[in-house]
Each structure stands twice: as C-alpha cells, then as structure tokens.
C-alpha cells in the first residue's frame, strides 16, 4: 500500500469527524541541497496543480528506497545511478525510476588561474614531476591534492586512478573533510596559487570559482578493474582505472503504487527535466548564499513557470 493510499484511509476516518482531508503524498528529502530544493519544488507543484496535500520527510537516500518499498514514502527526488543501482534492483517491485536523468560528473579540477600559471590541461599532466612541483606546499618535491574524505568510496577509486595514470608517484593524495578542501581552494583562489583537486558536479564550487575540469580519455570499462579492499588486502595493486569515471545520472523515483493511484502525478514526475545547471544553482543558493531550500524552490518556480506548465500538461 502506498503512503498515498494509506493517508486516504486515515483521511476517510477523519472525514467522519470533521473537515475533509486531501490525500497526502509523502516526498522523501535526502540531506543535500539539490535534493532538498527538488523535493520542495515537487511538493509545491503537487499542491498547486494536483490538489493533494504534501508532506516532506527528511530521510537518507538509501533508506528512502526502503521506505518507498514499505509504503511510507511516495517520491524520491534524486536517485543517483549507477551508485544506487543495486538498491534499485532490489526494490524493482515497488520503486520506479523515471526515465529522464540529469548527467553528473566526477573527475579532477583546477582553477583558471592555475591553468594560466602552469599550463596544465589533462589528468595525465600530473604524472610529470615538473608539473606536480607547482602543487608542492611542503617542499618534498611532490605536489599535494585532495581526493575526498577517506569515508567516500570515490576516494579509494581516486587512489587507483592516481596509480593508473602515474601521478601516485608525483602527487601526495590527501584525505580530509570536504569543508577543509573547499576552504583551501578558496585560499588558493584568493592568492592566485595553483591548486588541483577531486571534483564532482553538480556542486556550488563551479559557481563560486572559475573552475576548469582536467581532460582525460572518456570512460572505458576495459580500463577499469576495481577490487574491493574488503575482498583483497592488495586491492590497490590489483585495481586499475585508467580512464574517466563513468558519467552518473540522477533520476526522480516514485512508488509503483502511485502509478495506479495518481497517474497524472506520475506523468508530471516523468516529465520533470531538471538540468545540471539547475542543480548547481540549488547547491549554490543553499550552500553559499545560505538560503532555505523552501525559499530557493519558490524562487526557482517563479523563474521557471513555462517549464512547469510544460511538465504538468
């Protein structure tokens, strides 16, 4: 039973006692800006155009899929694939992933000032000792770069990439919290100092600084063999990743039951076509400008009336 159907039933009980209650659709809200703003946008459109009550429920992304499966939540605003593919497969009976996905990327980035000062263009350039020296802050001859917090699964793979591209020997790979890494980019940008770092989009840093992505060969599965550390103590030696990350996509998801109960809402969810720029703007507005996701959603709706009209047709 979907959350929607169940709330109808509770609503029916309440009906006898007093005022009619509209059906309630529950939108899950994972804790990052673009998901928060997207959830808010979906909620506002559903209330305005489909006459349903909406409840936003903060919940972790993976947990959210389980909650949809249990009928507690109806909509997931941002399912990342392939990251969550195995969970989506597990819940295939209860969760539908909308066809449209926003493309996201991860890789290595630098600033425009760095490109001008050093001439760096590609990921492979970091394997040249003379290039790596530009990023040396502790005079050990090696450059330094952030590859993500140790807790991120991507950080481990970045070590594999460094080995495969050859810059594991020329660069010291640093794990630290994202706030620290971003502050060091801010400080480098303020002084025009060279900096190179792991990056992913959508992310507010692209709006905050003039960021340039380092070039690399497109993702080629033949060059990627990732052995899990849990399975093999020599995982790093036995892994290879000598091309770009596979592009990710994030999609809206919803309860399969919603398709039966609310086909018009499902049609809207299938039509939503946010872009990478939309998501970056949301991230920037929440993270950098410190605005509430709800207020960012209102502003976005005011600026995008035509797109919404198109999506709710």
């Amino acid at each position: 039973m979907s959350a929607w159907v169940r709330s109808i039933l509770t609503g029916a009980c309440a009906l006898a006692a007093g005022p009619a209650l509209a059906a309630t659709v529950v939108v899950g809200v994972p804790a990052w800006p673009s998901a928060e703003v997207t959830a808010s946008i979906i909620g506002k459109v559903l209330e305005e155009h489909y006459g349903v009550a909406v409840r936003l429920r903060p919940i972790g992304s993976m947990e959210l899929l389980g909650a949809i499966d249990r009928g507690e939540v109806d909509i997931h605003p941002e399912i990342w694939l392939p990251n969550l593919q195995s969970f989506v497969d597990d819940y295939a009976k209860s969760v539908v992933v909308a066809d449209y996905g926003v493309t996201a990327m991860q890789g290595l980035c630098t600033t425009r000032d760095t490109v001008e000062a050093t001439g760096i263009k590609s990921v492979g350039d970091l394997a040249k000792p003379e290039m790596a020296a530009y990023f040396d802050t502790d005079e050990d001859g090696k450059g330094e770069m952030w590859i993500g917090p140790a807790s991120w699964s991507s950080a481990r793979i970045e070590r594999v990439r460094a080995k495969s591209y050859g810059y594991a020997d020329t660069m010291m790979l640093l794990n630290m919290p994202e706030d620290m890494a971003m502050a060091s980019i801010d400080a480098a940008a303020a002084l025009g100092q060279p900096v190179v770092f792991y990056c992913y989009s959508p992310h507010y840093v692209f709006a905050l600084h003039d960021i340039v992505r380092l070039e690399e060969p497109p993702h080629d599965p033949a060059t990627w063999t990732i052995v899990q550390a849990e399975d093999d103590p020599a995982w790093l030696a036995h892994s290879t990743a000598a091309s770009a990350w596979e592009p990710s996509h994030f999609h809206i998801g919803y309860a399969r039951a919603l398709a039966d109960d609310q086909p018009a809402i499902v049609a809207f969810l299938q039509h939503i076509a946010l872009t990478e720029d939309d998501a970056a703007m949301m991230s920037y507005a929440v993270h950098v400008e410190g605005r509430a996701p709800d207020a960012v959603a209102d502003a976005w709706l005011a600026d995008n009336k035509e797109r919404i009209e198109e999506w709710v047709k």
């Binding site: 802050t137 060091s184 400080a187 940008a189 303020a190 905050l208 410190g290």
Partner: peptide, 20 residues
C-alpha cells in the same frame, strides 16, 4: 580582501603556509 567562500561570516580560515 576579496575572499570567495561558502563558509559563513564569522568563520576563521588559517593558511599557515602563507602566514595568513
């Protein structure tokens, strides 16, 4: 100085390398 950051006003950032 000009300093573009996502950190909130009131935050202290220490760049020991540059002594700032």
């Amino acid at each position: 100085v000009k300093f573009r950051t996502a950190e909130k006003p009131g935050t202290i950032i220490i760049d020991g390398n540059r002594h700032f």
